[in-house]
Nucleic acid binder design. Structure first.
Lengths: 340, 340
DNA sequence: GTGAAAGCGCTAACAC
DNA sequence: GTGTTAGCGCTTTCAC
């Protein structure tokens, strides 16, 4: 199985306990002894067997990040940040997929994998508040995103309602009056969609506009194709919209694409705002105005909070951590710059 | 530490060996006994401790997938497929980042993490053949992508030269004669870029065209911004190109964006072909003609090959597995359909 | 400052 | 078909 503590101990002429102490530094070891052990380790090329260590002390050094999917650049960026931050603390990240499926989210939160991981960061999509409250697993957990509020777990997210209002205010300020929302979910438990829709409604009523349910498009999922299909439906209305606020950037990009296919000019005929600020929107034609949550910050804070719980340095009550966001204005609402 | 085999054994009134056999099914167990054990497991909520199992049999059930980055949708899709396939076989995937950095690729291939993982799938970018040949780690490894050839490891990839020729043949067939290549790498060790460039050159000479090094743009990396910068440089030439073959889709999308900014019509003024067939290219404006490797197949086969090595079912000599590819033609070479 | 030894939970060889 | 037990590599308590 490779080199073990015992091998080193034999080589250095000391006990395994001493080698362990050199490796971990829990107890002082005489300088000369330490040196001999060091040398033996170098010569034999020892590295600790993590399974044995875990079996002993109940830790694996692995945390799980459970997200709906990786194909969505938003989660890819989030995962990226989380993995880097975890690495800084000596933790390894295991990615888990939920497919945005309630059963899988439940499974993950209930401690499927609990034997392998020290803690869990979950980005729930369908999970209900009651599901979280009735969780029995003792594995520390941190929530990210909009899934669930008011539960006894650290929760890292932006203020979705405020962000949506900001997006809408921008559109309203540009004089748009028939603003559609694409990406509502038929499933009432798809929380994030609810919050963004709420912001949409608040902004409308704040501007003295009435809420027209016909302008709210429900989608099955939140991909590019959903956005494209959404715009097609909207443009078939007797009174089509002059702007779209999309649940996320992927949907918005689908809208942009459908606009081209329908021969519409963006933003002249229809302005578009997305949500997430994925890289793709910086190079789309036209470029995409969007809400930019600080994704790296979310990943970092989630990992930091979880590790704080793991090592006991974070003992305060679970916290709702709000991460900053920004409205990034680009061509899909402001128009193209002069070519050249 | 949670429920152990011993707890179940006590509850069911049998030995731990029997419980183990019920759980793992290595040896037959009488139906009645099995039932009692099953019940005890359900009541107490047992799940095996993987660290202990690993300590015993030297397996963790975890394989690592080391890729340059997740932000690139190509790798996100690949990872997605690999993770799903691994799950089917009861394996969990640990994602590792190399940042396309030779040092990190070396570290990974040399068995950093070796204690945690049973095997490794590596997508090398900078690693040299000699690096791979001098590898000492005994952790089974499978290579994916174009990094390195002729090494004693299973290697899953498409035929990059043939794919590049296919892309070029398409452009040549459309009558393009000044075709640029964007995404060559100054570092000669960036293998994939070399192969695609080779295909580019072969196709040119096959068409009786001379190779103009001025039409080959070297980029630092292979992102959207590199593509945009590349096109700007090309269009500043005295004799600008009438087509671009991009090293990958991200670069191609940067090219599409820069074309808009420069006031060029695609494909009328300049046709564009990418490589990878990421989702993004299906919804870009214009949509992107590209080479479509079967990414899911690559992920699946890599995992299957690795697991075959792990469980001993794959004993043949290491193999170069060629995965099919396809040329997908879209608007960036064929032009827009009529709006409506 | 150092060593001996127990035991974490599991599998597999061996005995019955 | 079932039970007993050694031992995987490690940390940690208790002695010295």
């Amino acid at each position: 199985m490779g080199v073990s503590l015992k091998d080193i101990a034999k080589r250095a002429g000391v006990s395994v306990a001493t080698v362990s102490n050199v490796v971990n530094g829990y107890r002082p070891v005489a300088e000369a002894t330490r040196e001999r052990v060091r040398q033996a380790i170098d010569e034999l090329g020892y590295s600790p067997n993590l399974s044995a260590r875990h079996l002993r002390n109940g830790r694996t050094g692995i945390i799980a990040l459970a997200i709906p999917e990786l194909n969505n650049p938003y989660f890819a960026e989030l995962a990226d940040a989380a993995i880097r931050e975890a690495g800084l603390h000596g933790y390894t990240v295991l990615l888990d997929y939920t497919d945005g499926d309630r059963e899988k989210e439940l499974l993950v939160s209930q401690g499927f994998r609990a034997q392998v991981i020290d803690g869990l960061i979950l980005s729930p999509v369908q999970l209900r508040r009651a599901d979280v409250l009735s969780r029995t697993s003792e594995t520390p957990m941190v929530l990210v995103g909009e899934g669930v509020y008011n539960v006894p777990y650290d929760h890292i997210a932006i203020d979705n309602v405020a962000a949506s209002v900001a997006a809408m205010t921008h559109l309203l300020g540009l004089g748009r009056r028939r603003i559609a929302f694409v990406g509502a979910q038929s499933d009432v438990n798809r929380q994030p969609a609810q919050l963004r829709l709420l912001g949409y409604q608040e902004a409308l009523s704040g501007a003295g506009l009435s809420y027209d349910p016909g302008l709210v498009v429900t989608t099955d999922y939140f991909g590019r194709s959903d956005g494209a299909a959404g715009l097609r439906r909207l443009m078939a209305l007797p009174e089509p919209p002059d702007a779209v606020f999309a649940y996320n950037d992927l949907i918005a990009i689908g809208v942009l694409r459908a606009a081209v296919e329908l021969g519409l000019r963006v933003p002249d005929d229809i302005a578009v705002v997305g949500f997430d600020d994925i890289d793709e929107g910086r190079y789309s034609n036209p470029t995409l105005t969007t809400i930019s949550p600080d994704k790296a910050d979310i990943g970092r804070r989630a990992v930091a909070a979880l590790i704080g719980r793991l090592d006991g340095s974070r003992e305060a009550e679970p916290e709702e951590v709000q991460v900053p966001f920004e409205l990034v204005t680009r061509e899909s609402t402001l128009g193209h710059p002069e070519p050249g």
